[in-house]
């Protein structure tokens, strides 16, 4: 079994495989091609870097989208 690391996504704990990238995380969440933006430890990870940005144990991630609002 691949060793897992713990990260926090939108305030919830998630276990993902060691060495997973932002793109892997989005695939894991089922939103790989969704219109989302990702912030890792309060810094934006541009879409073009999702595949090359490896996550680390204890990372805090925000995955956001547009919703209706005034």
């Amino acid at each position: 079994m691949t060793p897992a690391m713990r990260v926090e996504v939108n305030g919830e704990a998630q276990e993902i495989p060691d060495g997973a990238t932002v793109a892997d995380l989005l695939a894991h969440l089922g939103v790989s091609d969704g219109p989302v933006a990702v912030e890792r430890n309060a810094i934006i990870v541009p879409r073009a870097q999702h595949g090359s940005t490896e996550l680390a144990e204890g990372d805090s991630l925000e995955v956001v989208q547009f919703v209706g609002g005034g």
Binding site: N10, L29, V31, G34, V63, Q65, G68, G69, G70
Partner: peptide, 16 residues
């Protein structure tokens, strides 16, 4: 039109 930025609901997959 205005829109808001909110956390993706991890339970409800897919975009709005």
């Amino acid at each position: 039109v205005t829109v808001a930025v909110r956390r993706l609901d991890l339970e409800a997959k897919g975009g709005d």
